[in-house]
Nucleic acid binder design. Sequence first.
RNA 1: GGAGGAGUACCCAAGUGGUUUAAGGGGGCAGUUUGCUAAACUGUUAGGGGCUUUGCCCGCGUGGGUUCAAAUCCCACCUCCUCCGCCA
Length: 421
Amino acid sequence: MLDAKLLRKDPEKVRSALTARQADISLIDRFAKIDQKWRALTFEADELKKKRNEYSEKVGQLKRSGSDASSLMEETRGIGDKIKGLEEEIRKIEEELNEVILYLPNLPHATVPAGSDSTQNKEIKKWGSPKQFAFKPKAHDEIGTGLGILDFDRAAKLSGSRFVVYRGMGSALERALINFMLDVHTKEHGYTEIMAPVLVNRECMVGTGQLPKFEEEMFKLKDDPFYLIPTAEVSVTNLHREEILPADKLPMKYCCYSLCFRREAGSYGKDVKGLIRQHQFNKVELVKFCDPAVSYDEHEKLTADAEQILQKLGLPYRVMALCAGDLGFSSAKTYDLEVWFPSEGKYREISSCSNFEDFQARRANIRFKKAGGKPEFVHTLNGSGLAVGRTFAAILENYQREDGRVDVPDALKPYLQKDLI
RNA sequence: GGAGGAGUACCCAAGUGGUUUAAGGGGGCAGUUUGCUAAACUGUUAGGGGCUUUGCCCGCGUGGGUUCAAAUCCCACCUCCUCCGCCA
């Protein structure tokens, strides 16, 4: 969430920043109006409370000295009733305020390219070169089905579309990828491994910015107050919700394997085949909590850590800086890693690495304190390191042979004990 | 699911309706003393919001309620502990 003080002090700055990312700027004026009302009413209530405290004190003194306090008590009761009325009003206004401030997206960082949609994202790096196939490369779902390691038909029997069953070497490859990614991040990049709940409460979802705006994109339980996480970012970032972290512990770096669940409402007909867009998928997520002064350095490093997985797997990719109009709701700056898919002849997103600055920290109240200093909000960052299903798909496509079999990338041979699938 | 018990600040803990503006201790920080360390002594130490900022309001797990006045009384909920039942 945005800093209320900034919204009061410099609404024009917010207006221009949010215009750049095509957000609803009418919320800014609504905020000003409601906020002003809130300030006036809370001030009035505070003044009355002061009076009530003074009068109650006097009642106590009178009673102790044996005097009659009934008229003062009567008057104080009136003040109390007024306070109650005001507080009822304030509660309503706070709800209105939340309706506005929780729906305002983050401001793009100065280095974010201008643009209104994904066509204006900027390529800033390319690694590896797509392999030239002597035959027409097949799509990953065709390869996987052909090898008997992916079974979409039976998954549909269990759960419907956008689900998959991994079988035999398919299951082993998925598991190997998870272990490989976790090993690299923990042993080479210094992240602490986390395994966390995939069912979380509403506060968590608000803390990282999925709610209240994106309710219809989340799976939620009917009989219990839980949501299924769309990414481990939710569980891991909320680990430190309502905490003040010691400054010397920063940056805190976590990696977490989890299942992720997405309703994919509104993406009917998009990527209906294959592993690309599933309701349930595996992902290894990287999350950092850091001092605002270094968050953009940490962002570059986190992106490089995610890139390492692609490099070790020998998968060609490019790094895209998302333009302002394509940024996610909570993000101030995002790099997407896009991996090469030979069957489509194009790069597709496999990781999204974002700096949220203090946007999530403010919602989730995650702060840090330097010795002798005041608590400040941390900056939170995260990125996929990587989406496992999409990595699986990319390996099948990039390492396929003409006979439909797939070479195992060198980095995975120790995990699979095989050269060929 | 059932029956009990507990939740006070960085930690331990006192406090069952009114000088409690949350006692006391530990720890931390600052200072005095000291060749250095320790000890002793003194001071200080939860976080947050607002404004008409020498101040005021909020604050004792969370949210309501009772009362002139709530850490204290009432209701609901949350978390942890003990036991019973069920369970991978």
